[in-house]
Design a protein around this nucleic acid. Structure first.
Lengths: 202, 202
DNA sequence: GTCTATATTGCGATAGAC
DNA sequence: GTCTATCGCAATATAGAC
């Protein structure tokens, strides 16, 4: 009923196809056909294929703002780290295409990387660095840590679990039922590695 | 002098361009021009653009066989893990384009993924899993570990450091001078997290 | 082996009817 | 707002000269 019906249909179809094969791997012909919409609608609503792609990127990366909610909580750094891991895993489940855009923009950046992708990634990592620094300041994390490297290790650990799926699904069970176990496990690997005392509980 | 002169020139130019913009982001026109060779040479030597791409992939992923050397050594599991991290970082430095193919094939797999990329990734991860299991068996790594998740965490941690470069170079120093510090740091984060005893030395 | 010239297909964008 | 038909261009591949 809404006039934005076709617009939304194009966005969702494009999200699926661009995630699967990248900006240059999909033609507007195929895309509009898959969406059941005329090819000219892409220019009408998005001013062309690249405009559609940038709209998809904006929608996909908007959820990164949620990191502010985690950061805003009145909780200990260790809890914030667990909150981050849990949020990150839930995000991968709820927005299964996001990681494709995330990594394909990091490896083959388009002209939209600087405006949409880079700021979103940067923001999350800077906040994680802050959390780690705060943890060191409160003597909950050990002194020798390099906060930047540590934050990257944390993000990379979680992301790679999902990134590697295609190559490892034959021998690693990636089903969502294991997610809580995974969170606990990654917290174990990570906090016992960065905690001041080896018997820390969290 | 060698008749393979142009062939090699095409491979090296293609490695650079495909890594930067992906298989569909580069045309054979541009590629042959950049290589200073006629466009028809691509079909002559490689039977077309896709054949050239697959040759590039084969060359890039051939170095993954080196994992056998690490595994074959008569050393402790913990040392093998450090060997893996050191090898992995050196590989990123020496073959700076490999990570682009690695991640772009994982996110937007081409028809060559199954034959060239997947086996290379699988092999490395399976060997890491074996190393971790051996470490648990020798009581050097703690009992509760899930070897699959742990191996993925390790690989992801190292890879993401390089993958994230474009988004984090403003506030993280990625220069090779820091590599030894990085290895030590990642071993610290990782082994203290997975070691049976918190005062383990390696 | 290497080139130029060209055949053929498919691309993204849009004019114009409704 | 939505469609069909089409324009102009760039894609890959290759025929044929050297």
């Amino acid at each position: 009923m809404d006039t934005r019906d076709y617009r939304n249909k194009l966005i969702s179809t494009a999200t699926h196809l661009f995630a699967e094969r990248g900006l240059h791997g999909v033609s507007v012909r195929e895309l509009s056909k898959a969406a059941g919409v005329s090819i000219s609608m892409i220019s009408y609503y998005f001013d062309g294929k690249e405009g559609l792609y940038s709209s998809v990127l904006e929608e996909q990366f908007s959820c990164f703002d949620y990191i502010d909610v985690i950061m805003g909580k009145e909780s200990e750094p260790i809890e914030k780290i667990e909150d981050y891991i849990r949020w990150s895993i839930r995000r991968h489940r709820e927005k299964p295409h996001l990681l494709r855009f995330y990594t394909s923009e990091l490896t083959n950046p388009t002209r939209y990387f600087a405006r949409i992708v880079q700021p979103a990634i940067e923001k999350v990592i800077l906040i994680l660095i802050e959390i780690i620094e705060e943890g060191m300041h409160r003597k909950q994390l050990r002194k020798g840590l390099n906060p930047e490297d540590t934050a990257l290790a944390m993000v990379g650990m979680v992301n790679y679990y999902f990134l590697s799926t295609l190559a490892t699904q034959k021998f690693v069970n990636h089903s969502p039922e294991r997610d809580e176990e995974l969170i606990k496990h990654y917290m174990d690997i990570f906090t016992k590695g960065i905690s001041e005392h080896s018997d820390v509980t969290y």
